[in-house]
């Protein structure tokens, strides 16, 4: 019963009880990206409720979990107060862990990784570095070619990163959290 265990894990990590959902669809009705998703949020809830392994994998491999913007409209309106955004956070980490990734996740993960890499060494976001790394990761060399210089001209881009003094703590935070998970995986 591996799949039932997944639902239990989900509940213990996020507090979300999937059986509370009675499929009214209000989350989907108000979701700004539902039409772009493989499965809208209420459908994801239903897939989870079936408790089958196939459906769990279907969710991990969908773009739904990656397109969720965590805008929390669904949670604000859910009559059963089900924390779908928190659940989506969890499912994203699980998809990475299981390495079941929808193609749509690639630029989004690349962006997040570039972002985190940028702050890992300096403690603060280095936007120019972020864009450069993102382009390198996604091979989108030509994207935003006009915006970056304009930003620079308006004084919105620093050429050099800002560094905090206590970079040791930053290093430790990364080592003990996200990198810790990665090594466990390997």
């Amino acid at each position: 019963m591996e799949h039932k265990g997944k639902i239990t894990d989900l509940q213990s990590h996020t507090g979300v009880e999937v059986m509370r959902c009675y499929q009214c669809g209000k989350c989907t009705a108000g979701c700004v990206l539902a039409t772009d998703m493989n499965f809208p949020p209420s459908y994801v809830m239903r897939l989870l409720q079936t408790g089958t392994k196939e459906n769990y994998i279907k969710i991990l491999g969908s773009n739904s979990i990656w397109l969720c913007l965590n805008c929390e409209n669904c949670l604000g309106r859910c009559p059963m107060e089900i924390d779908i955004p928190k659940m989506m956070d969890y499912l994203r980490t699980q998809a990475i862990k299981e390495n079941i990734l929808h193609p749509d996740s690639k630029p989004i993960i690349s962006f997040h990784r570039s972002f985190l890499d940028s702050i890992k060494y300096t403690g603060r976001l280095y936007e120019l570095g972020l864009i450069a790394e993102f382009k390198a990761r996604t091979f989108r060399v030509t994207q935003d070619l006009t915006i970056a210089p304009a930003m620079f001209l308006k004084g919105k881009l620093h050429l050099l990163p800002e560094k905090i003094k206590d970079r040791m703590t930053m290093k430790r935070i990364f080592a003990k959290t996200i990198e810790n998970v990665k090594t466990e995986n390997k």
Partner: peptide
């Protein structure tokens, strides 16, 4: 079959944002 997420007014009309859950959401 589905609930309505929100209702707002525009140009004298009430825009109702609902969902048809029987069509897969």
């Amino acid at each position: 079959r589905g609930r309505v997420a929100r209702v707002y007014e525009k140009n004298g009309k009430l825009i109702v944002k609902g969902v048809d859950t029987l069509l897969g959401g």
